[in-house]
Design a protein around this nucleic acid. Structure first.
Lengths: 124, 124
DNA sequence: GTCTTAAATAACTATAAGGTTATACAACTG
DNA sequence: CAGTTGTATAACCTTATAGTTATTTAAGAC
């Protein structure tokens, strides 16, 4: 089903696994920003941030353009939507699964009540 | 906002970054399974699968119980819901962002039309 | 041209991840 | 008890990740 986008999902989830990169995405959710603007809040060198941005770009989570010396970054929402879609799909499947389990438990309880009722009837 | 659950999210997304582990979760969405049952579809040793399960368990995505020698694994939906929640939150934020951008583009187009209309009027 | 600023790249280090095989442990079977 | 099955752990190897500092490239400013 999702083998086609599997390697893309690999890269996406791997990119999301780092708190610095999630913070960068959170910042970009409020609008475009340059590398040095993104680097400012972090106790980390500029090359380190550039590496993180490369990871995010490779994962398709951001894209970069050119504005003089600056390289403004912006979000690419579709990739995140894909990851979100994967999660939602399986959440759905196993919510159904849990619903079935609940139904089963209800049935078991009902059987238990019947059993006790019969026992009580015999005891009379 | 989400600093409290940050390290949990680290582990969750890192766990989801591996296709073998995603396949294991997909399998578990259909119900409980033992280690050897989970290992069967993969061209990989049993210890490798045990490691993957450890990662999934550490991330809180699965839990394990005991049934004689077997160690049945089952999904823990809440953790996935948390990851899903993070994604959905930022999707929402930047969809608003894109909506604003769309509005801005519409405005720019409108201005452009006006400009052209004035030009045309003058040319008459 | 030279100087400055913004970002990327190179080279390196330390640690983590993902796999292997061999071995140990835990629980049932006869 | 010995044997078998299911799983975990140990030791090891290779590659990837996340950071560093030093250097280079790209674009503007003077």
């Amino acid at each position: 089903m999702h083998t086609v986008v599997s390697s893309r999902l690999d890269a996406t989830f791997a990119a999301l696994a780092d708190p610095t990169r999630r913070a960068i995405l959170a910042r970009l959710a409020t609008g475009e920003a340059s590398v040095s603007e993104l680097a400012k809040p972090f106790a980390m060198s500029q090359p380190a941030i550039s590496k993180h941005l490369k990871v995010l770009e490779y994962a398709g989570l951001i894209s970069r353009s050119r504005d003089a010396q600056r390289r403004p970054c912006r979000l690419e929402p579709q990739t995140l939507a894909d990851a979100s879609g994967w999660l939602d799909h399986y959440r759905e499947v196993w919510e159904q699964n849990f619903a079935r389990l609940d139904a089963l438990l209800d049935e078991m309880k009902a059987q238990e009540r019947k059993k006790r009722a019969r026992k009580k009837a015999r005891a009379k």
